Simulated scan of single mutants.
Amino acid sequence: MRNPIHKRLEKFESWQSLGFMASLCERMLPNFRLFCQMTEQLELANTYQNILNLVWEYLTVKGAKINFDNQLEKLETIIPDVNNYDFYGVVPALDACESLSELLHALIAGEYIERSIKISLNSLHTVIGYLETQQDKELSEAELKGTDEIQQELDVQWAIYRALNECDERDTELLISLKNTLRNEGVSNIGVEIMPEM
């Protein structure tokens, strides 16, 4: 499914791309946290949260030095294997981990545009997978575009994009506001609600 936002993302500065990616990972965190609750592995959700917190710190604290190779190693230990679970919740949990992995790879390799487009698509595919699982069939692009869930996902991505696009230079207050808004809402891209963990 094509998203017109992707052409716009190509014009972002690196800090804007990272802010966009971190925001989408923040929205996917409740999916991973729910999976961790269901499988009684809450410490894994805390690891995800800590890694994401360090990304926000890097974006908002001047001179913050963080070893993202080390964080990627930590992330790789908590990525669920879908073959080990027989319930749907593992899929959006895996998507959340894959998105955070893309974000860390962007920081390590400096590949901001490609990785932000991948995370945008990944978040959209989580919603598509959720709808197709609910309806137990493959949905056409026209059917998908007619759903409230897809419209909401696109609207949120555009809202994050617009907020970042309005700034000519790195705006720490805006980044903190984006993080806090998404975290306090505590609602994922597929409507999972989890109380925020600070």
Rank of each mutant, 00 (worst) to 15 (best):
Val90Asn: 09
Gly191Val: 05
Phe12Asp: 03
Glu40Trp: 15
Glu76Phe: 08
Cys36Phe: 11
Phe12Thr: 05
Lys11Val: 04
Trp158Gln: 10
Leu174Asp: 04
Arg33Cys: 01
Gln41Met: 14
Lys62Met: 02
Asn70Lys: 06
Glu40Val: 06
Leu131His: 12
Asp69Ala: 13
Tyr85Gly: 15
Asn165Leu: 11
Gly110Asn: 03
Pro4Tyr: 09
Tyr58Asn: 08
Glu76Arg: 12
Val90Gln: 09
Glu143Leu: 04
Val90Trp: 07
Met21Ser: 04
Lys62Glu: 06
Thr172Asp: 09
Leu24Trp: 00
Asn189Pro: 00
Ala22Ile: 05
Ile128Glu: 10
Glu111Cys: 01
Leu72Asn: 02
Gly110Trp: 01
Ala64His: 11
Lys137Pro: 03
Ile51Asn: 03
Thr60Tyr: 11
Asn46Lys: 14
Leu100Gly: 05
Ser23Leu: 02
Tyr48Gln: 15
Thr147Glu: 12
Pro196Val: 08
Asn70Gly: 02
Leu144Tyr: 12
Tyr88Leu: 09
Gln71Lys: 10
Glu76Ser: 11
Lys137Cys: 12
Asn53Ile: 07
Trp15Thr: 06
Lys137Trp: 07
Ser116Cys: 06
Gly191Lys: 07
Gly129Asn: 15
Ile51Gly: 01
Ile108Phe: 01
Asn67His: 05
Glu114Tyr: 03
Ser140Arg: 08
Gly146Ile: 06
Ala142Asn: 09
Phe32Cys: 00
Ile176His: 09
Leu29Ile: 00
Ile113Lys: 04
Leu124Phe: 12
Asp155Lys: 13
Ser99Ala: 09
Thr147Gln: 08
Ile176Tyr: 06
Ser116Pro: 00
Leu44Ser: 11
Ser99Thr: 02
Met28Glu: 03
Arg2Pro: 01
Ser101His: 05
Pro30Ile: 00
Gly89Val: 12
Gln71Arg: 12
Ser23Ile: 00
Glu138Lys: 09
Glu185Pro: 01
Pro4Arg: 10
Ala22Val: 01
Phe20Gln: 04
Val156Glu: 07
Phe32Arg: 02
Glu98Ala: 04
Thr126Pro: 00
Leu107Ser: 02
Ile79Gln: 14
Phe35Lys: 03
Ser99Glu: 02
Ala96Gly: 10
Gln135Trp: 12
Ala106Val: 00
Asp155Ser: 10
Gly63Leu: 01
Asn83Cys: 11
Gln49Arg: 14
Tyr48Ala: 15
Ile117Tyr: 02
Arg170Asp: 04
Trp158Ala: 06
Ser14Met: 08
Arg162Pro: 01
Arg183Thr: 13
Ser14Cys: 00
Ala45Glu: 13
Glu149Gly: 04
Leu144Glu: 08
Ala142Cys: 04
Ser17Pro: 01
Cys25Tyr: 00
Asn53Val: 07
Ser99Leu: 03
His6Arg: 15
Val90Met: 06
Ser177Glu: 10
Leu29Gly: 01
Tyr161His: 13
Glu10Lys: 14
Ile113Asn: 07
Ser177His: 12
Leu154Lys: 13
Lys179Ile: 01
Asp168Thr: 08
Gly186Val: 10
Phe87Leu: 15
Asp95Thr: 04
His125Phe: 11
Arg183Met: 07
Cys97Leu: 08
Lys74Val: 05
Ile194Tyr: 14
